[in-house]
C-alpha cells in the first residue's frame, strides 16, 4: 500500500457483506448486500456514493467506518488492515474516522444541553482545559450556529433539523478526524437547508483538507457535493456500476442505470422534464420484477431492466473497467460498445 499510493487514506479490497435469509424448512439463501467492492479513497477527496434504497450504500459506509465487519475481503485505514490491528492500535486510529448518522433527531441525546453535547467529547480528547467555553463557541461558529453563547444552555429540541445536523457535524469534528462518512445527512432535513449543509461540508473539506465520503440517494446532491475535484460512485444492488468525476458521471454517463437515474431525477424545467421522460424508456424497461427473480440472477444486476442486455449480461457479471486510459472514469458494463452517445446537455 505504502509503495504504490501513499495518499490513499482508506481502501476496500474485495469487500462483500452477506446476510443470510432463511426460509422455513428450506436451505438458507445468502443475500449479498455488498458484492466484491474495491474502492480507494484518496486524501482530501470528496466522494459521493449514490444509489437507491437497498443498493448497499449504507452497508458500505458502515463497513468502511469499522462499525460493521465485512463477510469477505478487507478494509484498510491509512494502509493498515483494521481487522488485523491490535485493540490498542485500533482505538488509537478509531477517532480518525467519524461517522455522521442519517437522522439527527436520533443521533443527539435530547436530555443534554448543546454545550455539553460538545464539551464532553472535547474534554475527552483534549483534557480539562480552561478555555472550554471558547472552544465550544469556535466549534459552533464554524458550523454556522450563531451566536454560539445563545445556544450553550439550549437543548437539541430548540434546533431545527438543519441545526441538529450542523451540531452533529461539529461533534464529528472534535477528535480532529481525517475521514468523515456522512450517511444521507440531507435526506431528513428541509429543502431550504439542504444546499447550506452540503455547502458546509464542502467548506470543511476545502479549509481543513479532510476526506469526506457522502452517501446520498440524490444524484443532484452528489453532483453539487463532488463538483470541483471529487468523485461519484453509483451503486446498484450491492455493486458499484460506475465511478468517476461528476463531469463524467453526470455529463457523460455510460452505464444505462446511471443514465436512467439521471433521467428519473425531477427537474424544474418543464420542457427538459418532458424530454427526460421521453428518453427514460430507452435506458430503463419499466416492468415489475418480483424480488425473488432478481435474487436468482447471476449476471449484471440491471439486466432485467436494461434494454441493451444480451445473453452475456444475464450470465456473467461485469467488472469495473476504464472508459478512458487515465483510469478516472470506470464502468461495469458488457455492452459499452452498444451504448449510444449521451443525449442530455446538463447545462441548458
Amino acid at each position: 500500500m505504502k509503495s504504490d499510493g501513499s495518499d490513499v487514506v482508506m481502501s476496500l479490497k474485495n469487500v462483500s457483506k452477506i446476510f443470510v435469509k432463511r426460509k422455513f424448512l428450506r436451505r438458507s439463501i445468502p443475500f449479498y448486500a455488498l458484492e466484491n467492492i474495491n474502492l480507494d479513497i484518496e486524501k482530501g477527496e470528496r466522494l459521493s456514493i449514490i444509489g437507491e434504497s437497498g443498493s448497499g450504500k449504507t452497508t458500505l459506509a458502515r463497513i468502511a467506518s469499522g462499525l460493521d465487519k465485512p463477510s469477505e475481503g478487507s478494509v484498510f485505514w491509512f494502509g493498515r488492515e483494521i481487522t488485523k490491528l491490535k485493540t490498542k492500535k485500533f482505538k488509537e486510529l478509531r477517532p480518525k474516522v467519524q461517522y455522521i448518522h442519517q437522522n439527527p433527531y436520533a443521533s443527539i441525546n435530547p436530555s443534554r444541553t448543546i454545550f455539553s453535547v460538545l464539551a464532553d467529547p472535547l474534554k475527552r480528547y483534549e483534557g480539562e482545559v480552561d478555555s472550554i467555553e471558547k472552544k465550544v463557541a469556535d466549534l459552533l461558529r464554524s458550523v454556522g450556529i450563531v451566536p454560539p453563547e445563545f445556544f450553550f444552555n439550549k437543548y437539541p429540541r430548540h434546533l431545527s433539523g438543519g441545526g441538529l445536523q450542523r451540531l452533529a457535524i461539529a461533534r464529528a469534528m472534535i477528535p480532529k478526524p481525517e475521514i468523515i462518512l456522512a450517511d444521507e445527512i440531507v435526506s431528513m432535513i428541509d429543502m431550504s437547508f439542504r444546499a447550506a449543509i452540503v455547502k458546509l461540508l464542502i467548506e470543511l473539506n476545502e479549509k481543513t483538507g479532510i476526506t469526506i465520503v457522502m452517501i446520498s440517494h440524490d444524484i443532484g446532491v452528489a453532483r453539487y457535493f463532488s463538483h470541483g475535484g471529487g468523485r461519484i460512485a453509483v451503486m446498484l444492488r450491492g455493486r458499484i456500476v460506475e465511478i468517476g468525476p461528476p463531469d463524467a458521471i453526470v455529463d457523460n454517463p455510460i452505464h444505462p442505470y446511471t443514465r436512467a437515474l439521471i433521467l428519473a431525477s425531477p427537474v424544474a424545467n418543464k420542457r427538459l422534464a418532458l424530454k427526460k421522460r421521453e428518453l427514460l424508456p430507452k435506458y430503463n424497461i419499466q416492468k415489475e420484477v418480483w424480488e425473488s427473480e432478481i435474487m436468482k440472477m447471476k449476471g449484471c444486476r440491471y439486466a432485467f431492466f436494461c434494454p441493451f442486455a444480451s445473453e452475456k449480461c444475464q450470465e456473467e457479471k461485469p467488472e469495473l473497467t476504464d472508459v478512458e486510459k487515465d483510469g478516472k472514469h470506470k464502468v461495469a458494463c458488457h455492452m459499452i460498445e452498444e451504448i449510444p452517445a449521451w443525449e442530455l446537455e446538463s447545462v441548458g
Binding site: 431550504s192 439542504r194 442530455l344
Partner: peptide, 16 residues
C-alpha cells in the same frame, strides 16, 4: 438552492 442534475453547479446558492 435546488441541487439539480442540470444547470450550472456554481450558481447553486443556499438560503441563509
Amino acid at each position: 438552492s435546488l441541487m439539480s442534475v442540470v444547470g450550472d453547479v456554481e450558481k447553486i446558492k443556499p438560503i441563509p
